[in-house]
Design a protein around this nucleic acid. Structure first.
Lengths: 144, 144
DNA sequence: CAAAAAGTTTAGCATTGGCTAAGTCTATTG
DNA sequence: CAATAGACTTAGCCAATGCTAAACTTTTTG
């Protein structure tokens, strides 16, 4: 194997991790939105655009634009000036996000960090943990 | 306290986590770049744009554009057609990234995940762990 | 039930981060 | 030392995600 090819091969393997992180970022926003919408529906019976904007800390117009994309991706349905609904796929994604979120947050608490830090860090981490790591965290929760 | 204000206050607290995640994303790319550049300098004596592109898995042109921004932010210095250098701030950021990366990766390994998963997940997680969580991870590594 | 308030959408702009294609510079090598 | 190969840059495109200001609906209320 020529030196050149070996070098390229090793770099390709490394770049996979970065590619994965970039891909995660794309789904991250969608997951945050559907998870939040699911929470709002469960808490208050409906999800309004302005509640989403308030909780995410972005402008209303940003929510409108993003929801349009999520609608095209088949995650939510919405009619002008009405509240937001999740599709089957949307619920599936929301449930999955909640599941991950719960495990990560409980794990961080078990590790001994404060409630506030667990809440904040789990929000960032949940989109970057593989199923394998989630299993390891769940195992730790049971056995500790 | 009126109901309205209480609601807004609670939402504001929650939105802080999302704001933080968005802010992290901004610095994330910069951290990845400087960390990689530092690694290249240490490994091969210099960091070339094409090596950065290869390892990150992006096009050369993307690297050029990003480096221009990093130069404006005072993290790297570069002259056309020459290799890339880190400023003092750049080195500081790189060292900090490496430190976090090492802790997170070692922690995941200690938790029992595979080497490959530890490598991939730590790449995504390192930008979202607070100092408090890092301390908890370091404690776990010592005491386990 | 008309006017005002609150909520939602549209329009238009900026930045980031990705790409390809084409051009330019540097280094190697015949 | 000229030609070529490789590295780098420029130009120009696109999509995503944010914003403000203005317009439009819906809801509330006097």
């Amino acid at each position: 194997m020529p030196q050149q090819a070996k070098k390229a091969g090793a770099a390709k393997i490394r770049s996979a991790a970065f590619r994965r992180v970039r891909a995660d970022h794309q789904s991250e926003l969608a997951e945050d939105y559907v998870e939040l919408i699911a929470d709002l529906i469960d808490e208050k019976g409906e999800a309004r655009g302005s509640d989403v904007a308030l909780r995410l800390g972005v402008a209303n117009a940003t929510v409108v634009k993003t929801l349009k994309r999520l609608q095209e991706s088949g995650l939510v349905t919405q009619e002008p000036y009405r509240s937001i609904f999740l599709t089957g796929d949307g619920w599936k994604m929301a449930e999955d996000g909640r599941r991950k979120h719960k495990i990560v947050e409980a794990f961080l608490l078990a590790l001994g960090v404060s409630e506030e830090t667990a809440r904040i860090d789990s929000e960032g981490i949940e989109h970057h943990v593989s199923e394998e790591t989630l299993r390891a965290m769940a195992r730790f929760l049971v056995r500790r």
